[in-house]
Nucleic acid binder design. Structure first.
Length: 588
DNA sequence: GCCGTTTTCGGCCCGACTGTTTTCAGTCG
């Protein structure tokens, strides 16, 4: 059973401790230790209770004796005396002051000690009355910036992140706009977009160019059609706000320093910190400009990113793994897994046509799949009960199968079209087609679309019943989340994944950018419980079949390899996986 | 407070930018 404190909740406590210790003026290395553990815990996908019970908490990077004890205390009692003592000294309501731009630990400490300010409201009043500008470390400009910051804070304009798919569309517009600009030797996204994080804070774009070309490139960038305002612009760095609110940063570097610059701007911050620490152990100091020998002071330029990692004795680390977890250690040992790639995907296992709610005829969807080099696809139009999606009755299914047969004949040397369904899981966990009909599909994909707000136990039971059905091969977009409009359904995912593992039901990683479901954390959790996966586009239009790479990226972020993904196998191997499972269950 | 292919003690990423400064502190990524 999952407890009520998960690793995210523990991370939150340690993050708060770090921030409070900063205000208190504690040793900055101790503060970093807490911050690092918080970051590790946010990335931790193993069940923290299990680690605790097995005495393996120290496996979490950054957890030593003292922090291990604190985690134990939290898990046992739900409280932490150290934290409570700390907040007597430094009240935690001060933390909201960190939300205001320009307010860091030193200034928070100052306003508290000199003016007794503890909240944004009190800070705003003092700023309006002009009381801040005379404090040490403040001044008229800081005071004005703080007032502007509070305004943005109140209007909730700060720090909103964009779904990866949206940020990616903006990126395409920018790349398209820049592609004919003279002087660009290389251009590449960096930051969390390059790491394919499911949400993106801002768009970092790196350009390699000689210094003379900088002005022209900058001008091209700031003349973007989708640009709202230029925030700042210099010879090497330009920041703009795009219409819609996303910030985009352009950075121009000389080609000889491309490797270190791309490495630095890709991050994550935690990854960079650990990488730079590892560099220092080899007497090399790493910055975005170069590796510098700390003894001789000689600069080593790295034109390629591979050079940076290579010089540090590591294999190149895929951006999706650069979160400061275990990747640097494994790269040093040259033991990084070979991650799955989009080119490894042999078949797409969720495709809709205008037989149900897809926008295009079956034939066009199949032709696109051929063009993308798929060797098999599964047509998964909706089942009859999903009226809003023109779900198929048995009669219409028969007609559809006739068309599939014809297409299979016509395209026999190119692709195999499998007959499938995205069958509705009803509120009680039963399926929307009867057993006999289900048996006639090549592959059955089950999905929950309605009543996602059932109570937790009911919903869990419903999923388990569906997964345990002997004819269900794949569970589509398992948690039902939709970016910006629907959170993951509340259910006991650990139990559900355990059932999927024991029944051999494959879990879908839905590549559609509005879903990305399972999330990377859930993939990892399911993987640890022994599940296998498929990655499907859930395409409802031709072009959406190209979005496979979004799903593959999430799989990569969860460290999956070809072996973990059923549709990265040949058709025979894939069907073997499915048959084996059905066989086992038919014997019951 | 953590950590160890030079260390169980003595280290702990690096730089840009801004504004308040008289040589640098604070914030940010």
């Amino acid at each position: 059973m999952e407890g009520n404190i998960d690793s995210n909740a523990v991370a939150e406590i340690f993050e708060r401790i770090a921030l409070l210790l900063e205000i208190k003026g504690e040793d900055r290395f101790k503060i970093n230790a807490y911050r690092r553990v918080a970051e590790s815990l946010r990335n931790e996908t193993r069940d923290i209770y299990a680690l605790y019970k097995e005495g393996r908490l120290k496996e979490i990077p950054g957890v030593g004796k003292a922090i291990e004890q604190k985690i134990c205390e939290l898990l046992e009692s739900g409280k932490l005396e150290f934290y409570e003592k700390l907040t007597e000294e430094v009240p935690d309501k001060l933390l909201s002051l960190y939300e205001i731009p320009e307010m860091g630990p030193k200034r928070i400490k100052t306003v508290r000690e000199m003016l007794g300010i503890e909240t944004p409201e009190e800070l705003e009043r003092a700023a309006r009355e002009g009381k801040l500008k005379d404090l040490p470390g403040f001044g008229p400009k800081v005071e004005r910036k703080i007032l502007e910051g509070i305004k943005a804070f109140k209007e909730k304009r700060l720090s909103s992140r964009f779904p990866l798919g949206e940020a990616w569309k903006y990126l395409q517009v920018i790349l398209d706009h820049m592609k004919n600009c003279e002087g660009i030797i290389a251009i590449c996204p960096a930051g969390s977009l390059r790491r394919m994080k499911e949400t993106v804070g801002d768009l970092d774009i790196l350009v390699a160019a000689e210094a003379e070309a900088s002005e022209k490139i900058t001008n091209t960038f700031t003349n973007l059609g989708i640009m709202d305002e230029v925030i700042l612009s210099g010879p090497t760095k330009t920041s703009v706000r795009l219409k819609g609110g996303l910030q985009a940063d352009l950075r121009i570097v000389e080609p000889a320093r491309w490797g270190t610059a791309l490495q630095y701007f890709t991050g994550s911050q935690q990854h960079n910190i650990l990488l730079r620490e590892a560099a220092l152990k080899k007497n090399l100091s790493l910055s975005e400009y170069a590796l510098t020998d700390t003894i001789s002071g000689v600069e080593i330029l790295c034109p390629k990113e591979e050079d940076v990692y290579g010089r540090l004795g590591m294999s190149w680390i895929p951006p999706e793994l650069r979160e400061g977890t275990a990747e640097i250690k494994l790269a040093l040992e040259k033991k990084l897994p070979k991650l799955i790639e989009t080119e490894d995907i042999k078949g797409d296992l969720q495709i809709h046509s205008n037989w149900s709610d897809g926008k295009r005829p079956l034939k066009e969807m199949v032709e696109k799949a051929c063009e993308l080099g798929r060797s098999y696809i599964l047509i998964t139009d909706h089942s009859q009960g999903l009226g809003v999606a023109k779900g198929l009755t048995p009669d219409r299914l028969t007609q559809q199968w006739r068309e599939i047969d014809e297409l299979n004949e016509m395209l026999a040397d190119k692709i195999v079209i499998l007959k499938g369904t995205e069958v509705e899981v009803k509120a009680d966990g039963s399926l929307d087609y009867d057993y006999e009909l289900l048996k006639s599909f090549d592959v059955v994909v089950a999905a929950v679309h309605s009543n996602l707000r059932q109570d937790r136990d009911q919903l869990t039971e419903r999923y388990i019943r569906a997964i345990s059905h002997p004819l269900v091969h794949i569970l589509a977009h398992p948690t039902g989340r939709l970016f910006g409009s629907r959170e993951e359904a509340e259910a006991d995912w650990e139990e559900i994944f355990q059932t999927a593992a024991s029944t051999g039901t494959l879990l879908e990683i839905n590549a559609h950018p509005s879903r990305l479901d399972l999330s990377e954390k859930r993939i990892r959790q399911a993987f640890n419980l022994g599940c296998k996966f498929v990655i499907s586009t859930d395409a409802h239009d031709i072009y959406e079949q190209e979005y496979m790479f979004f799903g593959v990226a999430q799989a990569r972020r969860a460290w999956l390899t070809v072996e973990d993904v059923a549709n990265a196998q040949s058709l025979d191997a894939f069907l073997g996986l499915i048959k084996k499972r059905s066989g086992v269950h038919h014997e019951r």
